[in-house]
Design a protein around this nucleic acid. Structure first.
Lengths: 204, 204
DNA sequence: CGTAGGCTAGACAGATCTGTCTGTTAATGT
DNA sequence: ACATTAACAGACAGATCTGTCTAGCCTACG
């Protein structure tokens, strides 16, 4: 079952103004995230999206293609939500983690879409894994650039620790008490950054 | 599909010396962990275990019961692997995370069995989720006790941060470079513990 | 005007899933 | 010697899965 790589290479952007395609992606985002990927069949998705089966397979040659598209959409959502302009690097990092904290505690949060997907796709060579790897690479590189820009003395090591922190947050937000997890974000980030910028936030 | 709670309440311990049951559990441990739970059917397991279908359903009334038993076995394995006697609390904590680091980098590591299972069982009320919660409660309580025994000034907060660290490690060990992740363990733990006991380890 | 293509409805194939059931064999303990 | 029970083999039911295919509607554009 060779998976079409079109969605990965981002070749010819598939019809952008297709309502049916849009509905399918919306349904996939909601169902895959809420219930897991293997647990949601194509029939569920086309029913939720009110789309004919042939239409679905016209836009997504296989289920794996849809899964890749789903994760790529999550990826671009997060990139948009964390894009900041004209912000000092330290503040940018803190903001990054506050956004993660907010999302990780919002109603309906069910862990990180990428971590969850990885649990269902063990094969590192699988296209789904490559989308996941690309997202993590983006996040890690962003952190490193910010730390370097902030002239952090140990950017490389600290990048890795911030990634650890991120993964801990998204897991804990689902499996432990979300409120408690979220309350930890600021303190944990400042501790990892090495006691820089510990401005207590009275209004929280 | 009501799941039998026998495996949860640990009522009458099911036949302990049953080779067939043992083989089923071994197969479940290998297959569920390596490939995911929804991805492995009962037929695969009974084939791998060389057991008749009726025998399987005799020991495990439903697949969910087997999943619970699988996770409970993982739980007791980890408890055994981290049980230490006559060790100072700080050293115990460090040893705890070194074991996690070793496991998270060993060949065939595929993330945390509990985190992965949670990704496939979204419903917090599901028996599988309860086994997961029990394991996390155990780990968290153990950490807190050790920190209190070590007279750590901020045991509660530090417990939560160590849990974040643990989750970051098991996720990173699967999704990122295992060697790099493992090399971070000692430094991260000492940083979270607050610069206590930073004895450099020359032979590593 | 005509045609290409997005879309719909739904049957269909073939595999796989969980779980049930029948019936037989072997071991064990009283 | 007999009853109980574990374990065997494997057919079977019914649901669900991915993916294919036919046939036709409707709209937009050349």
């Amino acid at each position: 079952m060779p998976v079409t790589t079109r969605t990965l290479t981002g070749g010819p952007p598939p019809p952008l103004k297709s309502p049916a395609r849009r509905r399918v992606l919306d349904a996939a985002n909601a169902l895959f995230y809420a219930e897991g990927i293997h647990a949601v069949g194509i029939d569920r998705i086309i029913a939720e999206a009110a789309v004919a089966k042939a239409t679905f397979y016209h836009h997504f040659p296989s289920k794996d293609d849809l899964v890749c598209a789903y994760l790529q959409e999550q990826d671009s959502r997060i990139r948009r939500a964390t894009a900041l302009r004209d912000v000092a690097p330290e503040a940018h990092i803190m903001r990054l983690f506050e956004v993660i904290g907010e999302i990780s505690c919002g109603p309906g949060f069910r862990g990180c879409a990428f971590v969850n997907a990885a649990a269902e796709y063990p094969d590192h060579a699988h296209p789904v894994r490559q989308v996941i790897a690309a997202h993590r690479r983006w996040f890690r590189d962003l952190l490193r650039e910010l730390l370097v820009a902030a002239r952090h003395p140990d950017a490389e090591r600290t990048t890795a620790m911030l990634v650890l922190l991120r993964d801990g947050l998204v897991v804990g937000g689902d499996l432990d008490d979300p409120a408690q997890t979220r309350a930890l974000v600021r303190a944990a980030v400042t501790r990892v950054l090495g006691e820089i910028s510990p401005p207590a936030d009275p209004c929280e």
